[in-house]
Lab assay of single mutants.
Amino acid sequence: KKVLATKVLGTVKWFNVRNGYGFINRNDTKEDVFVHQTAIKKNNPRKYLRSVGDGETVEFDVVEGEKGAEAANVTGPDGVPVEGSR
């Protein structure tokens, strides 16, 4: 997949743990970017399912997906594990 941007910060708009996807709002362009649970690189080690929490700040790369921009290599800021869904 073509990389459109790297090390982008954003805020998780919503994430559905059961369906394994959601959207992140980019801090720079204010665009919403699709995020799938497989894109989460560093999950909260205390959680079994990969997820990001609503309102959580995350860092990610933006790649060209089949339906437009999507997140890849999702971590917390500066590469720490994500907090995950509460």
Rank of each mutant, 00 (worst) to 15 (best):
S85L: 12
V58G: 01
G79Y: 10
R46L: 12
R86N: 13
D54Y: 11
F15W: 07
Q37A: 15
V3F: 07
N16C: 08
F60R: 02
K2E: 06
N16F: 06
Y21S: 04
G65I: 01
N43L: 13
S85D: 12
K2R: 10
E70R: 10
F34K: 06
W14P: 06
F23S: 04
L49D: 10
K13G: 01
G65F: 00
R18P: 05
V82D: 12
N25E: 12
V3M: 07
L4M: 06
E83C: 13
G20K: 09
G84T: 11
E70Q: 11
A72L: 08
I40F: 14
V17N: 10
G10C: 00
E66D: 11
L49T: 12
G76N: 10
E70V: 10
F23R: 03
T57N: 08
G10D: 04
V35E: 03
K47C: 14
N73T: 01
K47Y: 10
G53E: 15
A72M: 11
E66P: 14
K30Y: 07
V52N: 04
F60C: 02
D54F: 14
N16Q: 02
G84N: 09
V35M: 10
S51W: 11
N73H: 05
T57C: 10
E83L: 14
V33P: 02
V63H: 02
T38S: 15
E66A: 12
A71H: 00
A72I: 14
K13E: 03
N25G: 03
I24W: 04
P45Q: 13
P81E: 13
E83A: 14
P81M: 12
G22H: 05
T29I: 03
V35C: 09
E59I: 14
F60A: 04
E31K: 05
V58S: 01
K30Q: 09
G65Y: 02
V80H: 12
Y21A: 04
K1V: 04
A72C: 09
E83D: 12
D54H: 15
G10K: 04
V82W: 09
N44H: 11
N27K: 08
V74F: 00
F60D: 05
G68C: 05
K67Y: 09
Y21H: 06
D54A: 15
E56Q: 10
E83Y: 09
K30V: 02
F34Q: 05
D61S: 01
E31L: 01
K47Q: 14
W14A: 04
N25W: 04
E66W: 08
E31R: 03
F15R: 00
T11D: 04
R86E: 14
A71K: 00
D54S: 15
N19P: 04
K42P: 10
N73R: 05
E59H: 04
N25P: 00
W14I: 03
W14H: 06
T6V: 10
R46Q: 12
N44V: 11
V35R: 01
E56V: 13
E66T: 10
H36W: 00
E66Q: 12
N16P: 02
P77M: 14
A39Y: 05
F15S: 05
I40M: 07
V17K: 12
A69K: 11
V80N: 13
Y21D: 05
P81S: 12
R46T: 12
G10T: 03
G22F: 01
V17Y: 11
T11M: 07
V33C: 02
E56S: 10
H36E: 07
R46C: 11
K41Y: 08
V80Y: 11
I40T: 02
D32Q: 03
D61P: 01
V12S: 01
R50T: 12
N25T: 15
V58M: 03
P77I: 15
R86I: 10
V52L: 15
N73S: 05
T75Y: 06
A71I: 04
T11I: 10
H36V: 03
G76K: 15
V74M: 00
E56G: 08
T75G: 07
V62G: 01
N43A: 14
L49G: 14
R26P: 02
R26H: 02
S85P: 13
N19C: 12
G79C: 10
Y48F: 11
N19M: 15
N73E: 05
V12T: 03
N25A: 07
H36I: 01
A5C: 08
V74T: 02
K67M: 08
T75W: 05
P45V: 12
F34V: 06
E31Q: 09
V82M: 12
A69F: 09
K7Y: 00
K2P: 06
K67R: 14
S51R: 11
S51Q: 10
K7Q: 08
V12A: 02
N27W: 13
F34L: 05
